[in-house]
Design a protein around this nucleic acid. Structure first.
Length: 578
RNA sequence: CGGGGCGUAGCGCAGCCUGGCAGCGCGUCAGCUUUGGGAGCUGAAAGUCGUGGGUUCGAAUCCCACCGCCCCGACCA
């Protein structure tokens, strides 16, 4: 492939952690000289970082091609109108970078490409004979993130592989989805990443269902739960839970009774004042949902999950009501709301079904109600699972399991979109009977730059990066410890040439530096195979081959080194293929 | 947008409280010595102390405003 000399490239390593980095992968990417910050959420890829990035892209591209997807490249600049046409201009409005051209035409830098690709499909795919088709691109996306952070993890500008499938039927769409899902598993495995697939919320993308590919990491921005007994796993935004039978409280048949609870507004204060456990309290939250006011009931010890709530109520817009709205809707001040006697619709979390002897607000200042039986005392419009799942909750899919909470980095997301966009853009085809039908669509994203950083987050030690063989900027680094000695130079060159001819990228550390510096840099940069050429080993006709993942430093006859290294390389690459 | 922290040489930091010559370590450059896990000595280059205003004989230091970066939250494919 190619031979690079340290003295001729641009590799600047830092001894100290950068002041503005928090998580290991971000610190290491900067220390190893892979990236440099231009401004918040904007980074330059340095030569080594660029090489690693291209390797991730190459793997993703190969797996897309293998799955039959077709590469295209769409514009990053998009006219405003297409976002209005899909109805997402308002939803995505704040995350889009907007600008005008000199004709005052309004444009946006694409945060994603459903609109553009669906327009394309509408124009080009006209017959069932042309289906199915999956189109993809690897391109820079722009999002005005509220808070960019962790280096490439959440940046304003990042590289994404996005694919879009178009099918003639729902069954065929499921098949396209399955192909992408499997391509994703292969791609991440080849990158040396261990991923967990979870059921996910579709959010602003819409559609029927979706799966996220998560890299488990403490620094992950997403909460997920997984069952300790079965395969169930889900993003917390979506995660369900099972509802065990409730133990009745003593005297739970008593009639409701108002009690004075001066200044006790929060669950904690009321529970302490009445000396009862928080789970016996019912939280009553007043929400504005698409312009109407509703009451939401949740167990006192649980938080309402607005993603699940929005889905349950099929709501577009949802927010906690302000104090005036609460007073008008309940007749009482904030902190003392309860379901009894309300005229607005009341929705309750399923966990409350059958609860008797509960405590609620009385819709009156400093007053709560004891002995509440929701079925008897309140008018519940509907019961839904609308609270966050928590650690130790019972699994919703199997009888035996409990849910465990983890943190994850979302590196991929696949959506079954259905006809949301194809209807909006009239992306229709003629079937065998000459009938016009909307295409069924799916979309599939991989955060390429985020994937790269995730690899480091998942694979490093106290000395530096530990690259998987497949995406290391250079799989092999040859450290020439005495670049002044002709025989060391000669042996280094020969080995490098042999490896180059065998198809490996090689970096020669030819700097006039002390050995310790070279070792430390090689560890920091994480080359999977480190070869040392020195007078000492050369005296016996040998070189040293050390793997970044191993402690030992075996020597090998220098004439056999290239073959051995090639073998290690190939075995290692093979081990990453599913 | 709310809360907190930071901004001084390429990088990491001290100095600020209590105003008085702009400092340290690493890196960079030159020379000598050294050479298997971030070497030693000597010398050198390099700073609008984030920006603007104010107080003062005098401001990195005190006051006001703004900007940038980081963290927590809200928010978010």
């Amino acid at each position: 492939m190619s031979i690079a000399r340290w003295s001729e490239t641009l590799i600047s390593t830092l001894r100290d952690d950068p002041q503005d980095a928090e998580i290991p992968s971000h610190k290491l990417m900067v220390r190893a000289g892979l990236i440099r910050k231009l401004s918040g959420g904007l980074y330059t890829f340095m030569p080594l970082g660029c090489k690693a990035l291209r390797r991730v892209e190459a793997i993703v591209r190969q797996e897309m091609d293998r799955a039959g997807a077709l590469e295209i490249l769409m514009p990053a600049l998009q006219p405003r109108e297409i976002w209005e046409q899909s109805g997402r201009y308002d939803i995505m409005g704040d995350v889009m970078f907007k600008l005008q051209d000199r004709q005052k035409r309004e444009l946006a830098l694409g945060p994603t490409h459903e609109e553009v690709v669906t327009l394309l499909a509408a124009a080009e795919l006209k017959s069932y004979r042309q289906l199915p088709r999956t189109l993809y691109q690897i391109q820079t996306k722009f999002r005005d993130e509220i808070r960019p952070r962790f280096g490439l993890m959440r940046a304003k500008e990042f590289i994404m592989k996005d694919a879009y499938s178009f099918d003639r039927s729902w069954d065929a769409a499921d098949e396209s989805y399955r192909k992408m899902y499997e391509a994703y598993l292969r791609a991440f495995a080849r990158c040396g990443l261990r991923v967990k697939v979870v059921e996910a919320d579709t959010g602003a993308m819409g559609g029927q269902w979706s799966h996220e590919f998560m890299v488990l990491a403490d620094s992950g921005e997403d909460g997920i739960v997984e069952c300790d007994a079965c395969a169930y796993a889900a993003n917390l935004e979506r995660a369900e839970r099972a509802f065990p039978e409730l133990e009745p409280y003593p005297d739970s048949d008593k009639a409701p009774e108002q009690v004075s609870t001066p200044n006790a507004k929060t669950i904690g204060q009321v529970a302490a004042f009445l000396k009862c456990p928080p789970e016996r309290l019912i939280k009553t939250l007043i929400y504005n949902v698409d312009g109407r006011t509703v009451a939401i009931l949740a167990p006192g010890d649980r938080d309402v999950n607005e993603h699940k709530l929005a889905r349950a109520l099929e709501a577009r817009d949802l927010a906690l009501a302000d104090d005036e709205t609460i007073a008008a809707a309940t007749g009482g001040p904030v902190g003392f709301s309860g379901p009894i006697g309300l005229t607005i619709p009341v929705y309750a979390d399923t966990a409350l079904k059958g609860l008797r002897g509960a405590v609620t607000g009385a819709n009156r200042v400093d007053t709560h109600v004891l002995n509440v039986d929701l079925d008897r005392d309140a008018a519940i419009e509907a019961w839904h699972d609308i609270c966050f799942a928590e650690n130790d909750d019972r699994c919703p899919r199997c009888a035996a399991g409990k849910l465990r909470e983890k943190r994850g980095i979302e590196v991929g997301h696949v959506f079954k979109l259905g006809t949301k966009y194809t209807e909006a853009f009239s992306a229709r085809f003629l079937d065998e009977d000459g009938q016009s039908e909307a295409m069924i669509m799916g979309c599939y994203g991989i955060g390429v730059t985020r994937t790269l950083q995730s690899v480091i987050e998942q694979s490093h030690d106290e000395k530096g990066i530990v690259w998987p063989m497949s995406i290391a900027p250079y799989p092999v680094a040859i450290l020439n410890l005495t670049p002044g000695k002709p025989d060391c130079v000669e042996a280094t060159q020969t080995l490098a040439r042999e490896l180059d001819e065998a198809g490996l990228d090689v970096l020669i550390d030819d700097r006039d530096e002390r050995p310790g510096v070279k070792f430390a840099d090689a560890d920091l940069l994480g080359f999977p195979i480190r070869v040392v050429v020195s007078e000492r080993s050369l005296a016996g006709g040998n070189v040293e081959i050390k793997l970044r993942t191993e402690k030992a430093t075996p020597v090998i006859e220098k004439d056999n080194a290239a073959l051995k290294i090639r073998q290690i390389y190939q075995d290692s690459i093979k081990a990453l293929i599913l």
